[in-house]
Design a binder for these strands. Sequence first.
DNA 1: GCTAAAATTTGAATCGATCCAACAAAAATG
DNA 2: CATTTTTGTTGGATCGATTCAAATTTTAGC
Lengths: 359, 359
Amino acid sequence: MASLLEGQARPIRLADIAKAAGVSHGTASNVFSRPEIVRAEVRERVKAVAEQMGYAGPDPKGRLLRAGKVNAIGVATTEPLSYFFDDPFARVMMAGISQACDATGAGIALVSAANQEKLAWNIQSALVDGFVLFCIEGGSRLVDLTRERRLPFVALELGFQDETVSAIGVDNVAGARLAARHLAELGHRRFAVLSLGFADNPTGFATPEAVRSAVYTGTRDRLAGYFEELSRFGIDTAKIPVYETENEDKSTRAGLEAIFAKEEPPTAILAMSDRMALIAIDWLKARGLNVPGDVSIVGFDGVPDGALSTPPLTTIAQPIIEIGRRAARMILDHDGAVRRETMGVEFIVRGSTGPAPRG
Amino acid sequence: MASLLEGQARPIRLADIAKAAGVSHGTASNVFSRPEIVRAEVRERVKAVAEQMGYAGPDPKGRLLRAGKVNAIGVATTEPLSYFFDDPFARVMMAGISQACDATGAGIALVSAANQEKLAWNIQSALVDGFVLFCIEGGSRLVDLTRERRLPFVALELGFQDETVSAIGVDNVAGARLAARHLAELGHRRFAVLSLGFADNPTGFATPEAVRSAVYTGTRDRLAGYFEELSRFGIDTAKIPVYETENEDKSTRAGLEAIFAKEEPPTAILAMSDRMALIAIDWLKARGLNVPGDVSIVGFDGVPDGALSTPPLTTIAQPIIEIGRRAARMILDHDGAVRRETMGVEFIVRGSTGPAPRG
DNA sequence: GCTAAAATTTGAATCGATCCAACAAAAATG
DNA sequence: CATTTTTGTTGGATCGATTCAAATTTTAGC
């Protein structure tokens, strides 16, 4: 029975209701936000008028300005929006963030933009109380942009030297060492590393300088972990090819091509993400190489898909869900402090690793 | 070089900058939103003052109220938030929605709540320009709640008789007929249906009354399609067990238990979603039954996971991405009209269907 | 040097609500 | 009946910006 006269007229405001019902706007407001303090008779009258005029209820836009708090957190990345629904790691992380938000009734706003100007604008204009940043590629710019907004934010991955930004990550060195030791103990001596980026623009084979001047210390730490452990087995880490990918299909396959084009191809691959590891398994199988018979692979992350591949993936599992939960909570109950948390990792041995082939 | 005196003081407003720089609000505002119309000298001075005072830039909360438009769409469901990242169908749909939003720079706000009160509140207070509704369980309530908000919205799945709500769905009858004909032509004569809900509370085996009084006409149409086609092959559809599940693991497995406990178990299963079909494949394999040797299965949806299962899933593919894109665009360029679109489906034969076993 | 045109700047109005001190009316108390 | 207490209502102030007509300053033209 809504008004039939709606037409293109401008929407009805609370003030219109107040006038029509013959009460002050204060009272009209109370009818909706604190109904218990207004006399029943008045309350019903106002509600009836609202109903009759087709009032949609107090507009959150107005309420917001007064209240100051949006009750939503922004999750931002430099990847396109679909990244949140495609990438296995992101999906698990989002599940964790969702849990924390569900628990407190907070909303989630997804923020992204491939190009820089739009990203800046989207970050500046997002209606949120704080941000969780997925620091993949272009992470440092993302942090800079977000900092300007002067809202609480937390970076996923301890990707930055910068001790002034809150961050949650894992013990990359320890995780990497576990992976490397496992392979070395299985007798492997020829390695290759599928690496994440050391800086914002992955370049293929990483030079020692690139590693030294890494922007992403997470990547650097994983590599350091691999190398430290392999050195202890007497392996010359200087000879190990380290290929920087963009953690997606194309560049990972390019990396594999490059690595296996070398004269002494590796018998073991250390991948810094499960995504790359799974792509590698696929690539190797298509090439007729047996995993783990010819080549062993260890991933990093512990995404669910890793358990379902053939063979299932040996990996260093991060507590992704828990990281997501904590990140969201850091924003939700923000207290102004900078927090940097390092979580432990878990080593999961599955089927993608085996003894080094003879000869 | 931000102010060291920030402390707990209330944030700096544009008006503070204006005063400090000795210009009017209007000019200060222009410096940020239309810098080209203010004299270079003034612009730089104001910017310098802003920088020096640690101004975070115009607060979107204030801008929003004036502008009226949020530039974001809400995607709502009655499932928990993690549904968006877990469910394969939802994920593909979100990818489509993301594409449309990315293209116009719009944001996405995820809205959900398991319990009714919170749902109502979340819908009422979401800062969005319109909604895309995932009408799974409790879809009719979701529509009612959203309608009260008087913002444009579109229901996914033509789940409602109600011709006054915009909706996008597929030709369920045609799709279902394709699936049924395929199986009948392969010689199958004993069927079972893994069904979606006909109303808000799935109940196990569906009675003809439940079907007749279906709230979700999409479910009803699929069933009608199956039955129409099977009848043409002389099959007595009255004897076909139709089990309503909640489209997740537990109830689907319960349905399979119930179906295969009958004296004449089916040789073919018509599943109304790929998710159920994939669960069924898993369940059957665990039971030692061969797919498609002993039992054939046809899904519905065409999610990517279906191509990767063993055996890969024969299914009726919806143009999910395209549906998502259109839904988002309907909100983004809303013109006040009610639109109801029906998309075609595509039949994809893969490995989960084969000739009926002999005997 | 004067006037018309163009470029800037101003300040009040507006967006849509909530909050709160002050006031009015009704009920309870002495 | 006068006074205090309780309960409800009012209207102005506020949240933080943008907009636009009018006022002012510059620049251009002669």
